[in-house]
Design a protein around this nucleic acid. Structure first.
Lengths: 120, 120
DNA sequence: ATCGACTCTCGCGTCGATGTGAAGCTACAG
DNA sequence: CTGTAGCTTCACATCGACGCGAGAGTCGAT
C-alpha cells in the first residue's frame, strides 16, 4: 500500500511515516516512480512504534528493538548483550513512570471528588 | 529559604524554579536585595508541580490546579465549573496513558524474557 | 489529454521545559 | 576590605517528533 493508505489505516500522519523511514524504523520498498510501498506488516510496526514512542523511547532505541519482534528473537541477545541492559533500563523507567502517573491520577481524582462546600 | 536551598532540597534546578515563578506556579516574596524568599510550603508545591508536569500537564493547567490544594478547596468548583471538565479530561488522559505504558512495559518485558536460542 | 488526488523531496517552523552563559549585585567569612 | 559563593536579569540555544508549504512528478479515471 502507499503512504496515504497506511496513514489512514494507522491514524499516523504521512509526515510522521516519512520521518520513521528516515530514522530507519520502517523500510518500505520503492516503486519505479519513487513512491513508497508499505507491507501489511508495516502496519503492525507502526503501532508498535507509536506505543514505544508514547512510552518515552527514542527513535534510535526503537530502531534497535523492532527487529527483535519480526523474525524470531535471535537477533536480540545474539547481537547485543548491552541492548538487553538498555532495555531493562527502559523497562524500569517505564515502571517508575507508571507509578508517577498513578500518583498524579490519584491527586486529580481527589481534587475532582472534593465535595463542593454546601453553603450553610 | 533562598532559591539555592530550595533547589537542593527539591532536586530541581534554580533555572526551573525561576521558570515556575515566571509561569505563576510559585509566588516567592522578594527581599530588599531582590533575592527570592521561598516558604516551606513551596517545597510541597514544587513536588506537586513536578508530579503534574511528569503526568503531561502544562504549566498553565497546573497554575489553575495548585490553588485548589492549599487553602481548602472552595476555589475549585466555586470559581471554575469548566476547570472541572478540564481536570476530568486530564484524568482520563492520564489513565489512558497508564494503560499504554503498561502495554509498552509488557512488550519490553516479553522481549527481555525471551530465551536465548540454545544452539543444538 | 487532462484533471484531481496523491506522492515526492527539501527545508524551515514549532512547542515547552529547561540549559547555558554573560554581566553585575549581595551576603557573609576572614 | 577582599574574596568567593550565591543571587539577579536577559536572552539565545537545545532537543525530538513532527507540522507545513513550495515546487514538481505520478496515478487513475473520464
Amino acid at each position: 500500500m502507499r503512504i496515504g493508505e497506511l496513514s489512514r489505516r494507522s491514524g499516523v500522519s504521512s509526515r510522521a511515516l516519512r520521518y520513521y523511514e528516515e530514522q530507519r524504523l520502517l523500510r518500505p520498498v520503492r516503486r519505479p516512480s519513487g513512491y513508497r510501498e508499505f507491507s501489511e506488516d508495516d502496519l503492525d510496526s507502526v503501532r508498535r512504534i507509536r506505543l514505544l514512542l508514547a512510552a518515552g523511547l527514542g527513535t534510535a532505541m526503537i530502531a534497535e528493538i523492532l527487529p527483535c519482534m519480526v523474525e524470531g528473537n535471535e537477533g536480540l541477545a545474539a547481537g547485543c548483550p548491552e541492548l538487553l541492559d538498555a532495555l531493562g533500563g527502559e523497562h524500569d523507567r517505564i515502571a517508575a513512570s507508571i507509578a508517577e502517573l498513578e500518583s498524579a491520577r490519584t491527586l486529580l481524582a481527589r481534587i475532582i471528588a472534593t465535595p463542593v462546600p454546601t453553603p450553610g
